[in-house]
Write a protein that binds this DNA or RNA. Structure first.
Lengths: 152, 152
DNA sequence: ATGTTCAGATCGATCGCGTCCACGGACTGT
DNA sequence: ACAGTCCGTGGACGCGATCGATCTGAACAT
């Protein structure tokens, strides 16, 4: 993992569909060389996936909500997690420090669907209570930050 | 925007580096046809970008925080937004309903850097106070949900 | 210093893909 | 029925992906 790898990563975060030839030109190596580097980054787990970023409204997901979950004191966190994982509307799931164990980012089509989701979450075994905030608009999301090797 | 477009979108959300030929096979069209459809989806803004998803720890961004912002009553929201936009650590920014105007997702390398970020946010003109939650772990993030056209 | 070894890059060649173009069929409105 | 339009197909050509072989340079041991 050297400066060239970081360079490749930065380029692919900006545009995952760049060809190997184009990557090669930009980092100053040959195409097979970057091909091999990218392969290693993928198999070592540094590159997790390549995803198209879609405007959510256009696929009927106009409502974004952030939901904090407070667990019951006797809850099994792993079981709760598995329940959440089975709910497709939950796009992100963070395990948090603090009273609220989880923070979920969910996307649904309508406020009605959000209501159904919240009911479902509150009924989930191990969940004591929820607190939901609705995003009126998403200013930006998953903006890649420049990769400068951080201070030692 | 028909079923084939949704199919293409779903495939590209799963793997943005699929070739047009492969996409064509999976949706049952010729390669030029999907090429044209993808081009239209891009220029109409449905497809915003293609991004490689990177394991944050491997590029020195091991600390994830979610920060709620309460604005001063006299604050100019647009100015506050521009200040936030200039801070690279802020990966996502939602404008929320409720007392807290914004919810930010930020990623930094160390707790020390997080402290510096919070100080910077609190000093930002228009910001009355902040409330920060630290993600102990990210269970998953930006999981694409299946695109079934939702009920009318 | 010299030789050995190994990692990683380049070079060259082959195969498949991206991309442009002209043609053709279906649907719309008149 | 006819003309216009949209959208897809098929062919062709040049470039890119990808494999194997060779080469270079660094690290280490003698």
């Amino acid at each position: 993992m050297d400066a060239i790898d970081l360079n490749i990563i930065e380029l692919l975060r900006g545009n995952a569909r760049l060809s190997y030839a184009e990557l090669a030109r930009q980092v100053g190596l040959s195409a097979p060389a970057v091909h091999e580097r990218v392969g290693k980054l993928e198999s070592s787990g540094v590159i997790r996936a390549y995803r198209a970023e879609i405007e959510p409204e256009s696929i009927g997901l106009g409502v974004t909500a952030l939901i904090e979950i407070i667990e019951e004191s006797a809850a099994d966190t792993d079981d709760v997690l598995e329940s959440f994982r089975a709910i497709p509307e939950i796009e992100s799931c963070y395990f948090m420090a603090g009273v609220e164990s989880f923070l979920l980012k969910a996307r649904v089509g309508t406020i009605g669907e959000l209501e159904a989701l919240i009911v479902r979450l509150n009924r989930t075994p191990g969940v004591a209570s929820t607190r939901t905030g609705i995003a009126l608009s998403t200013k930006w999301e998953n903006r890649p930050q420049p990769v400068g090797t951080p201070p030692a």
